[in-house]
C-alpha cells in the first residue's frame, strides 16, 4: 500500500468521552470502517442510519475515522460542549 493513499488528514484527537458520529450524507457504504474495526462493530450500519456508535465495546481507537476515505466519521463529545 502506498503511503499517499492512506495519508488522510483526519486528526488523531482521541477523546476519552467521545463517540464516533457519522454524517450519513457523505457515506457511500463502501464498508472500510467496519472492515477496519478491531472488535468487529458494524460501523457502516451506523453510518447508514446516521446514528452514533454508542456501543460500550467501542474502544474509540479512531481506526474507522482514519480509514474512511470520505470523512464520514468523526469524534463528537458525548458531553455538553465546554466553551
Amino acid at each position: 500500500m502506498l503511503e499517499l493513499f492512506r495519508d488522510t488528514t483526519i486528526k488523531h484527537a482521541v477523546l476519552a468521552a467521545g463517540q464516533v458520529t457519522p454524517d450519513s450524507s457523505r457515506c457511500v457504504q463502501c464498508g472500510i470502517c467496519s472492515y477496519n474495526c478491531p472488535i468487529g462493530i458494524d460501523v457502516r450500519a451506523h453510518a447508514l442510519r446516521g446514528a452514533p456508535v454508542q456501543e460500550n465495546r467501542c474502544l474509540t481507537c479512531g481506526e474507522c475515522i482514519l480509514r474512511c476515505p470520505r470523512g464520514v466519521l468523526r469524534f463528537e463529545s458525548a458531553l455538553p460542549e465546554r466553551l
Binding site: M1, F5, V28, Q29, G31, S34
Partner: peptide, 21 residues
Amino acid sequence: YSRPGLAYYLTGEVPEKQLFP
C-alpha cells in the same frame, strides 16, 4: 454493492465481499 467502493477495492483497502452492505 457499493459502486463508489470499487475504487477502494482496486487500491486494496477493502476486500471484495466487504462491498456488499
